[in-house]
Design a protein around this nucleic acid. Structure first.
Lengths: 336, 336
DNA sequence: ATGACGGATGAAAACGTTACCATCTTTAGA
DNA sequence: TCTAAAGATGGTAACGTTTTCATCCGTCAT
């Protein structure tokens, strides 16, 4: 029924070692033999068993990406597609495959079943998914893993993250240099460390430019469009209004945009609006929105490289690092 | 170094057959032996090798999802996350894992290397990715596969698809019943079979209600915001204007919305706007957009079930079927 | 007391490769 | 002509499980 290396060996009148060497294109096999064996292989429709090869070579040629599908708001999820694209592009170079594992449908035994059993040779996961116990277990087994998202404290773990604090600085600096004076920050920045990092960048940059930090200009709430709308409306009705809004998400930005238009202020001439996390429709808003663009494909690549270097035991000089976001300036902040 | 089943057997003073049976919780092993062996296993930090198990059991417990990352506009890509979620949720029930393979970075040998070598036991792919050659090869090897997207002609292949024609009918019917009379269809419907299916549904429903089909009300071009804007602007400047727009994508819808507002028509009172493919920001548009919602998670589940049934050799009575889209009515079409 | 049976366990053969080392055949150099 | 080295190929032991039988040992019915 199923054709194996033995069948080929017999049919080609050689030993199975020879067949194996032909498969792996060993230089010690003569060209004539190679031709003959390959001929027989294709006549018999022979494909070597991946699993047997894995066992003999002691390598599964796959890595795992751990996610939690139950959390819709998860960072990894939001940029899932491009992060995967980045990871895939690097592991494919090594002939590795990428297996997705939903930690939520595996909860307890996923480490044993999937990881330590060596079904994959390394894993990539989000920092919110990695608790101390798991980290220790992985380190203990010296099982290769890479974290997406900054890890404090543990100098052994490899991680890569978007530099959100820098992002906060960049977007703030841009607004200041564009001529805006009273910059508000609308976000749910306490819910999530990402937001609080961005907020820190915002505050630091104000200070750097000697612009007073106005407590009231910072709105902290849910990340909804309604919240953005209400916050902007409220701020715009004050004596001394902000002349620019930094929005923590595109949902918030939509609300802010509405409120500003409703109050009949011109964007960007009177009010500037910028938001984090560039998204496909941002260039098509009215006006097109200035955004911070996180190169999540590159983030995936970086994570993939960090992991593959561990697996291949290449030393990685810089295994904890940030990726710079890019500022994409569009109409919504072109004051001049 | 690495602890195997033999080490456990020795340490527990039993044969490795016994250890194996304990691992698989065979009922023929006495409770005392089970306890003893389990004790030893955990003392030695023993985890059975997944690969060896795969070889012995002749089963890899994984399936593959084939995608083409180079095509950003790809249907599978657009709803990647929720489709994956659906697939994962069903395969996880069978203890299977999901491996993502980018056909683009594998082009030639992916079938041999990944599929026929049995690295995965079945695959799921998009109908645009499956040419006749590949289909025949898979069928010839009786390798389980399931297609996302309708397949004409071949009665053997398992597929599941969103019923786009029905979707076109539903959205058109809704507009008609909401009281709109002259419904335009803005899309790039020739580029893609999805759009042409939707267009068919639109035309059929007009006919069903004896509403004349106005050639000029159908705009066929690129799927961009600009195209939507220009099309709507043009149509709104005509003698007999449309009073409703069906947009093939949310990009187009943005453009249409702009043009309608600019021309100072009230939505939904004077002009109705509806679009395909519900997206997160749709409820937060001004006004919130009526959309067709494709339950892509469910689509993933359906594909997963189709595939697992093949792998488990359960006969599937209905292995070619459509999934009904859902209409989500929002402000943009609430004429009354 | 004996035979049959059922419950536990073990021995050994798969599963389908790779990799090490030995062997055999040429070929080149002296 | 002989020897050493290089070039091809094969034998066999891994790789780490599962699975099929066979065996052993009590126990129970006759």
């Amino acid at each position: 029924m199923k054709v194996t290396i033995n069948d080929i060996a017999k049919a080609a009148n050689v030993s199975k070692s020879t067949v194996s060497k032909v498969i792996n294109n060993s230089p010690t096999i003569s060209d004539t033999t190679k031709r003959k064996v390959r001929q027989v292989m294709s006549e018999h429709n022979y494909i070597p068993s991946s699993i047997a090869t894995q066992l003999a070579k002691q390598s599964s040629l796959s890595i795992g990406l751990i996610i939690d599908m139950s959390r819709r708001e998860h960072f990894l999820n939001q940029f899932f597609y491009s992060i995967i694209g980045g990871i895939e592009s690097v592991v494919a170079n090594f002939n590795y495959d990428l297996t997705i594992v939903n930690i939520h449908s595996q909860r307890d035994n996923f480490l044993d079943r999937f990881v330590l059993s060596k079904k994959v040779e390394g894993i990539i996961l989000d920092n919110t998914l990695l608790d101390t116990t798991m980290a220790n277990q992985l380190l203990e087994h010296s099982f290769p893993f890479t974290v997406i998202g900054k890890m404090d404290g543990n100098s052994d773990v490899h991680w890569v993250d978007i530099d959100n604090e820098l992002g906060g600085e960049m977007i703030t600096k841009h607004l200041i240099e564009a001529g805006y004076q009273r910059i508000a920050f609308i976000g749910g920045f306490n819910e999530d460390t990402i937001f609080s990092q961005r907020f820190t960048g915002y505050r630091d940059m104000l200070q750097q430019y000697d612009i007073p930090f106005v407590d009231n200009y910072v709105k902290n709430g849910s990340g909804t469009t309604e919240f953005g709308y209400e916050s902007a409306k409220e701020l715009l009705s004050e004596e001394v209004k902000p002349d620019a809004f930094i929005c923590a998400s595109n949902y918030i930005a939509h609300g802010v945009l509405e409120a500003v238009k409703e109050a009949n202020f011109a964007i960007p001439e009177q009010i500037g609006v910028a938001t984090f996390d560039n998204y496909p429709l941002a260039p098509y808003m009215n006006p097109p929105l200035t955004c911070l663009d996180n190169d999540t494909f590159f983030l995936g690549e970086a994570a993939g490289n960090l992991l593959m270097n561990q697996i291949k035991k290449h030393t990685d000089q810089n295994y904890q690092h940030f990726i710079e976001p890019k500022l994409i300036v569009r109409e919504s902040t072109r004051k001049v």
